[in-house]
Amino acid sequence: MREIKASQIIDKVKELFLKANYHIDPDLLKLLQKTLEEETSPIGKYVLKMIIENNKIASREELPICQDTGLAVLFIELGQEVRITDGDFAEAINQGVKEAYQEGYLRKSVVDDPVFERKNTKTNTPAIIYTDIVPGDKIKFLVMPKGFGSENMSTLGMLKPADGPEGIVNFIVETVKKAGPNPCPPTIIGVGIGGTADRAMVIAKKAITRKIGEPNKSEKYAIMEKEILKRINNLGIGPAGLGGNISCLAVHIDYLPTHIAGLPVAVNVCCHAARHAEGIL
């Protein structure tokens, strides 16, 4: 067994949430710069320039890229040979989130009761934590501060197996079309196909964090990603929804085995910042 102290978890989670909120993924920044050359709409070009400028300022001065510093989502791979000492795993994660948000000038956007009181918890906790137990003696953290302008545009379709690839593509494109300017386009679209209703959405969210634009390992799914991306960009939504040919930066699909009766399709929409950071203990 390898011992990892709760305090190490706190520090790592804090470090990663600060990083994700201040520093844009360099690959994403490169892609934004490339799209600036491809965009033909004058307003679209203007918007992309502002987005790029914002990302540079945020990184240089360590300011949050967006005022919506998100709900704290974590995907954790916990090695089964790890023993956590001096504290509780979930508490340590929440403590790390709390410290990042309180000390890093990040906005606290969590309310306790979703319907009645809606009182701010003042710490941006509780975090949303997904843990997979994996072989090994390390803990891998993938953190994702998820803003709700884009989260609100997400959809779940419990399609019929007969709907097939065409039905899936149509459902995803329709979701993005309806969302229009709301989720801060150009977007990154995470898609989860298969599993159960709940699992499909989890893998859709995680798919957003894949290396930007890297195609699916399966050729069939890679072709589907390409087609969806093309069809979304053909909608003309454009940067900030003000018209243009860059509406979406990438479509990332992940898939899982599913039931004979089902074809769950989850679409998790993400803004152009797609904030996330990874680290290992």
Partner: peptide, 25 residues
């Protein structure tokens, strides 16, 4: 432009809470 909050903050020269401080954010 959504997601350009660091840039926009440069044009805010003064900021004060004027109501409903209990609502925090």
């Amino acid at each position: 432009i959504g997601g350009t909050a660091a840039l926009i903050s440069k044009s805010i020269r003064k900021s004060e809470v004027v109501a409903y401080e209990d609502l925090r954010a």
